[in-house]
Write a protein that binds this DNA or RNA. Structure first.
Lengths: 239, 239
DNA sequence: CAAGCTCTGTACGCTAGCGCACATAGGCGT
DNA sequence: ACGCCTATGTGCGCTAGCGTACAGAGCTTG
C-alpha cells in the first residue's frame, strides 16, 4: 500500500492535509508524459487533470496561421486543467508537455466532486488559479515590453525552477515556438548567453552553468511571478 | 423599495436567479466611478468588489519603470476584484476606471461569505474568472504577434461592446498607455482608421462610425475572446 | 559507412515601432 | 480676447526583430 505522502511529490498536493491525501490516494493514477504530448486541445474537454511531478507542461495559444505563444508554464507546483473546476470545461488553449516526466492524474469528474466539497482542495485550487492569472498577465506585459534576450532568460529560469537538475532537453526551435519568436532570434540570444558563460548547449541539450548570471539579466517579470507564486502557495496554514 | 432586478443592469448579476438577487440587494451599494479612478492598487487589499453598470475598468500591469500594459478590460459583463474570492486577497495589477460611469459594489467580506455558500454566485464568479483568463491569454498573444493597427481595432471593439453608445471619451495618450505603445503610434493608427472612415475623433472624443469596418480589420483575438465570453456567460441555465 | 535528417550558425535587406523634437490647434480660464 | 494647457500631427534617425536563404555540423538509420 502506497503512503499518501507520495502525492506530495507534487508541491501543490503537498500543501493538503495528510488526511485529505489519504482519502484521495486511491483515485490518483501515475502516468508518464512524453515530450510533445498534448494534454489538452483547444476547445476540447479534458478527461483528467494532471499534477506534474517532474514533468513540465506549457499552456499555448495557437492562432489560425499556426503561430503560437506560451502563456504559462506548469510544473510540480501546479496542475493542468483548471477549466474543469472553473466550470467552463474547455479552454481555447493547448497544453503540451515541454519536458518529459511523470504526473499524477485524476478523472475530471472526481476532481469536480472534490472541488465542490468546498474543503481545502477547493481553496488550494483557487489560489493556484490566481497564481496562474498572474503568470499570464506578466507574460502579456513581457511580450509587449521586453527583448528576446530577456524573455529567453525568463523562460530558462521558469523551466529551471520546475526541474530537478540544471539541464533542459529542448531545441531552439521549440523555445522559439514557446516564446512566439523566430528560431534565429533564439539562436542569437542563446549564443550571447553561451558566450557570457551562463549556459552551454548543443543539439537540444541545454545546461545552465551560471544561474545567478541569468537572474542578473532577466527582466522583472520573472521575480514578479515567482514572488506571487510564493506568496500564494507557500503557506499551507491558509489552506 | 428597489426591485432586485435593478442589479441586472450588470449582465453578470443578471444571470443569477431572482431570489438570489433579492437576498443580496440590501448589501449592494451604487457608486459613481470617475475617469482615472483607481479601484485597486498593486499588492493592496481591495475593500470591495465592483460590478460595473455603464463604466469600464481596465486591469493594468505597471512595471518598475512606469510602463504599463492593459491585460484585461471589465465592463457590465463582469466584476472587478476576483482576487478577493480566489483567496489571494491582492494582485500585482491595478484596476483603473477607463470610462466613467456607475457600478454596484459589495463589501469584500460579504462577497466572500456569498462565495462560500457554494451556490449560483460561486459558479458564476468562477465561470467569469475563466473568461478573464482567456482574455488575458489572448492579450498576451496579441501583444506578441499583431500590429498596433490591429490592436487598436481590438481595443476599440472591446470598449464599444461595454458601452451603451458608439462614443468613447479617451485620448490617444491614454489608449497608448493601455496598449503599452507610444502615443505617436496610436496617432498614426487612429489616423488610418479615420481616413478609412471607420472612426472620427477630436480631442479625446472618439466616435465609431463603421463598426463592421473595424471588425474587418481586427485580428482574430477579438473574436476568440468574445466567443469565449459568450460561451461561458450567456447560458444562465448552467448557473 | 554513407545518406539523410535535424539542429545550429550566419548573413542580408526590410519593416514596425521606438525615442526624440517640435509644430499646430482646439478648448478653457481669467 | 488673450494666453495657456492639453491633444494631436509630423518628421527623422535608430534598432529589434522578421522573412528568407543557405551552409556546416552532429545524430541516426539503413
Amino acid at each position: 500500500m502506497l503512503e499518501p505522502t507520495v502525492l506530495q511529490q507534487n508541491a501543490l498536493l503537498g500543501l493538503l492535509p495528510e488526511e485529505e491525501l489519504e482519502r484521495l490516494l486511491p483515485s490518483f493514477e501515475k502516468v508518464t508524459l512524453t515530450l510533445g504530448q498534448s494534454l489538452s486541445e483547444s476547445g476540447q474537454q479534458m478527461s483528467h487533470v494532471y499534477f506534474p511531478i517532474d514533468a513540465i507542461v506549457s499552456l499555448l495559444c495557437v492562432m489560425e496561421d499556426g503561430a503560437s505563444t506560451e502563456i504559462a508554464v506548469v510544473g510540480n507546483e501546479g496542475v493542468v486543467g483548471v477549466s474543469l473546476f472553473m466550470g467552463g470545461e474547455t479552454t481555447p488553449s493547448r497544453a503540451i508537455v515541454q519536458s518529459a516526466g511523470t504526473a499524477y492524474r485524476l478523472k475530471g469528474q472526481l476532481l469536480k466532486n472534490e472541488f465542490y466539497r468546498a474543503g481545502p482542495m477547493q481553496r488550494l485550487l483557487l489560489r493556484y488559479t490566481q497564481a496562474l492569472l498572474t503568470q499570464m498577465a506578466q507574460t502579456a506585459v513581457c511580450n509587449r515590453h521586453h527583448s528576446v534576450d530577456q524573455q529567453l532568460c525568463r523562460w530558462l529560469l521558469l523551466s529551471l525552477d520546475r526541474l530537478p537538475g540544471d539541464k533542459l532537453i529542448m531545441t531552439q526551435e521549440l523555445i522559439a515556438n514557446m516564446l512566439g519568436v523566430r528560431r534565429e532570434g533564439v539562436t542569437e540570444s542563446a549564443g550571447k548567453l553561451q558566450k557570457a558563460g551562463l549556459i552551454s548547449y548543443n543539439r537540444g541539450h541545454i545546461t545552465v552553468t551560471d544561474r545567478p548570471g541569468l537572474e542578473a539579466r532577466v527582466c522583472e517579470c520573472y521575480a514578479v511571478v515567482k514572488r506571487e507564486y510564493d506568496r500564494l502557495l507557500k503557506h499551507p496554514e491558509v489552506v
